[in-house]
Design a protein around this nucleic acid. Structure first.
Length: 252
DNA sequence: CTCCTGTGTT
DNA sequence: AACACAGGAG
């Protein structure tokens, strides 16, 4: 059982005390272990494979990615195999996924990794970000998924879920807002197995706490509802300023 | 921070 | 046609 250590002093968080925050982590992980998705790239601890999956997932839904991922790692089982392959071969394996420049960037990044890091992914965020195609999101995802570092992977999913749970109203398109979520998520993740934390928020965002139709149906067993039952309100919205018609608050 | 890109939605 | 989105890059 985890213990809350951070100091959370965020707007929109007034209603949450430490015990509730701890409860959030517990419910989140509990939900994830029961309902979370078993995905091919979650079975491996090969950073190179995890990298491939993260790049593919940036632009495509999970179900579409699965066969591409399986095929891709079979065809390019090692960084060296991908680095040595002709670009055309790589693009052929990517055919149908779209955003082909990301396939090119992935190969370029892997070539840099082979040339500069002996074919191994560096273990810190700034070195990861020096690789072509690896930005803040992918670097954080790799730190948590591959190296079990408490680094929250801030993407739209994570911000949407946390904004609803913690009643954060800010426009998630703004960079200032991103900082805020970074702070909140960093404090939350320290009491969690980092990979599970990110994966759980990802699954929650994709399966329950979705962009559209944030339905509460079938939700008796979700972490969100557990929170609502404890007196927290759930502000359903995706972006701040606009779309105020979409905005309503439920209290249980 | 702003801009860029390909893609999907209205 | 216009805009939203989701990341990375500069």
């Amino acid at each position: 059982m985890c213990q809350f250590r951070g100091k959370l002093e965020l707007e929109g968080l007034k209603k949450m005390n430490e015990q509730q925050i701890q409860q959030f982590n517990h419910d989140l992980l509990d939900w994830f272990h029961r309902k979370g998705r078993k995905l091919p790239w979650r079975k491996t601890d090969n950073p190179y494979y995890i990298w491939i999956s993260e790049v593919m997932l940036q632009q495509t839904q999970v179900n579409t990615v699965i066969p591409y991922y399986d095929q891709f790692i079979k065809k390019f089982p090692t960084p060296e195999a991908l680095a040595d392959a002709p670009e055309q071969e790589v693009l052929k394996s990517w055919e149908g996924l779209g955003y082909y420049s990301r396939a090119r960037n992935l190969q370029k990044g892997v070539r840099e990794m082979v040339a500069s890091y002996n074919g191994e992914l560096p273990k810190n965020k700034s070195e990861l970000m020096s690789l072509t195609g690896v930005g803040p999101y992918t670097a954080s995802a790799l730190m948590s998924m591959a190296y079990h570092e408490p680094e929250p992977a801030i993407d739209g999913n994570l911000m949407r879920v946390l904004s609803r749970v913690f009643l954060i109203d800010d426009d998630i398109a703004k960079q200032k807002t991103r900082k805020k979520f970074e702070k909140l998520a960093s404090d939350l993740i320290v009491q969690t197995e980092p990979a599970y934390f990110n994966q759980a928020l990802m699954d929650l965002g994709a399966m329950v706490c979705r962009r559209k139709l944030p339905t509460v149906r079938s939700a008796h067993s979700t972490a969100i509802v557990a929170l609502m039952k404890k007196g927290c309100s759930w502000n359903i919205r995706s972006r701040a300023a606009k779309q105020s018609q979409e905005r309503f608050i439920m209290r249980c």
